[in-house]
Nucleic acid binder design. Structure first.
Lengths: 151, 151
DNA sequence: CGTAGATTTCACGAATTTGCGAAAGTTGGG
DNA sequence: CCCAACTTTCGCAAATTCGTGAAATCTACG
């Protein structure tokens, strides 16, 4: 249950190819695929057959981004984690933060590049395209939330 | 002109943090910020102060994904590269390909997980969210193209 | 065809990254 | 207050990644 035929591990692999750290991806997927409401760091380590330290490190990446959250579980001294309800939107936001930074870099680039030159045209194009997407995405997500609430 | 205060290098750094290989990102940004219609591999190597081999390797990543393209330039024995007109949309598509794979993995996961359990709910949620986005994005991009054509 | 300029390939060395193991730190219970 | 169960931190060794340098390959032109 820990080889590549495990869908969880497969997805982790895909995320890794998509740029996520390996261990981070594996921990995230372990949480996603866990057939329980919450899961402890120890359980994750057990399933992935990795050290507790490795899990701890991965959590330190995932938690601040909001892709997993600590779940208050009274009467237990270990930390329980779960995937937030709005986890996917958070993941999206994390992506968009990168795009935002790119837009800033593009803006600065435009300032420093010859006016009317090819570089300016390219960068302006980039700014327009991603700017448009970033502006429209929130509405799209909102619409999804509405549709989902009705279902 | 090759330090971190260079907007091109800055953007490359951002892309790297976003998951792209460092050299790949630097080459891409060199093409983007070049104030000429096309640029040769040699010129890229010169500006980035890296070996020709490194540039070659990066191009081998960027070209098949369509994020740079060879420009036919008669009367020159070196290859000229440029950023395609639809480069940003291609970049988007490349991203989406990863999402597609994730959706597949989610689908498989749903099959293997207990029916009605928390894992199934999470995975179905993921499928719905990203499925929705993937379905709506093309229309969004199309709209952008229309708006842009009018401007 | 031969040649000069340019790109790609390949193997090696370096540097970064990664995860483990163990010790230290926390937190709730007795 | 001490204990016990977890978690986090830290140093280290292994593995992977990265870019260079040099040789091989390619291509347009003479």
């Amino acid at each position: 249950m820990a080889d590549a035929s495990d869908p969880a591990e497969r997805m982790a692999l895909i995320l890794t190819r998509g740029g996520m750290q390996r261990m981070t991806a594996r921990v995230l997927c372990a949480v996603l695929f866990a057939d329980q409401e919450t899961i402890t760091a120890g359980e994750i380590a057990e399933r992935l057959v990795v050290s507790a330290g490795a899990v701890s490190g991965a959590i330190k990446m995932l938690e601040p981004v909001g892709m997993i959250e600590r779940a208050p579980v009274p009467g237990s001294r270990r930390d329980h984690y779960r995937f937030p309800d709005d986890g996917w939107q958070r993941m999206m936001s994390a992506q968009n933060r990168v795009v935002d930074e790119m837009l800033q870099a593009a803006e600065e680039g435009i300032k420093q590049v010859a006016e009317g030159g090819p570089a300016e045209r390219r960068l302006a194009d980039m700014r327009d395209f991603y700017g448009y997407l970033m502006a429209e995405l929130p509405a799209l997500i909102e619409r999804w939330q509405r549709d989902r609430a009705q279902a």
